[in-house]
């Protein structure tokens, strides 16, 4: 399994250009910082604790979501497309390990990216905006904020895994996975008209808005029920993906 994870990492780094994404994120950070610095220096709206970190994390997190969905999609559907999947499946590695390593490395990269972003935001915040103000309390708050982002990542990466195994097509997987990502809010809003809407997983995905922000009424009684509900979906996606990956012919 170690070897498999190492393989996936090498492919992600060289083939799917993580470093390019890191550069892009860095540029976004600088732009965000410059924008905040201008507002800050005008003086009318001074930037308080977390007022740089929170919007920064919430907005840049979108790119991490999109990018990691692309990562897992190319690692599965892309490898069916270019003929490398079949060569891997001929090797004496249990199929479930191969699939699991692809999902796992994407999850690790996604989690790492979220925390790297959080740390970068915190550092900028400390150096330029709210230096000195209860730094440790802020670290704690920022990391909780980062954790709030994880359920949605798990959900979309698992959904993309299932769709990639099912369709074996990169384009189709991305279309199907991004559809709820972009239209989830609208669908959720429409569903709100019905009292079963809280059984729609899309209404749960923004855990931060639902339970820590000023969203209108959380779908479940507490956050753990929501997280569990999202988790059950992810597990079902992965189980289905496993069964299809295990038993479907590769022609």
């Amino acid at each position: 399994m170690n070897g498999l994870l190492q393989n996936e990492w090498v492919k992600a780094w060289y083939g799917r250009k993580i470093w390019m994404f890191l550069i892009a994120m860095f540029v976004f950070l600088i732009l965000g910082w410059a924008f905040a610095a201008v507002i800050h220096s005008v003086g009318r709206f001074s930037i308080g604790p977390m007022e740089f970190v929170e919007p920064g994390l919430v907005s840049l997190n979108v790119f991490i979501n999109l990018y990691t969905v692309v990562l897992v999609t190319t690692a599965i559907a892309g490898e069916y497309g270019n003929g490398t999947m079949k060569q891997q499946l001929i090797r004496p590695v249990p199929r479930e390990q191969l699939l699991l390593s692809k999902w796992l490395i994407t999850m690790l990269i996604a989690t790492a990216l979220i925390f790297i972003l959080t740390i970068a935001l915190l550092v900028i915040d400390q150096v330029y905006f709210t230096s000195g103000e209860s730094f440790f309390a802020m670290i704690y708050e920022a990391f909780i904020l980062a954790l709030y982002q994880l359920p949605r990542l798990v959900f979309y990466i698992s959904l993309a895994t299932l769709m990639a195994v099912l369709t074996r097509s990169t384009a189709l997987t991305l279309v199907i996975t991004f559809f709820p990502y972009f239209f989830g809010n609208i669908i959720g809003a429409i569903a709100m008209l019905y009292d079963w809407s809280h059984w729609l997983v899309l209404t749960h995905l923004d855990v931060y808005q639902n339970y820590a922000g000023m969203g209108g009424g959380p779908p479940f009684e507490n956050i753990w029920l929501s997280v569990g509900f999202i988790g059950i979906h992810a597990v079902v996606f992965l189980l289905l993906a496993h069964l299809i990956f295990q038993y479907r012919d590769v022609v």
């Binding site: 003929g83 490398t84 060569q87």
Partner: peptide, 14 residues
């Protein structure tokens, strides 16, 4: 077993 099915299936970017 060693096998090549139809094409070698290599990672072109490596």
């Amino acid at each position: 077993l060693g096998a090549i099915v139809e094409n070698p299936g290599l990672f072109e970017y490596l």
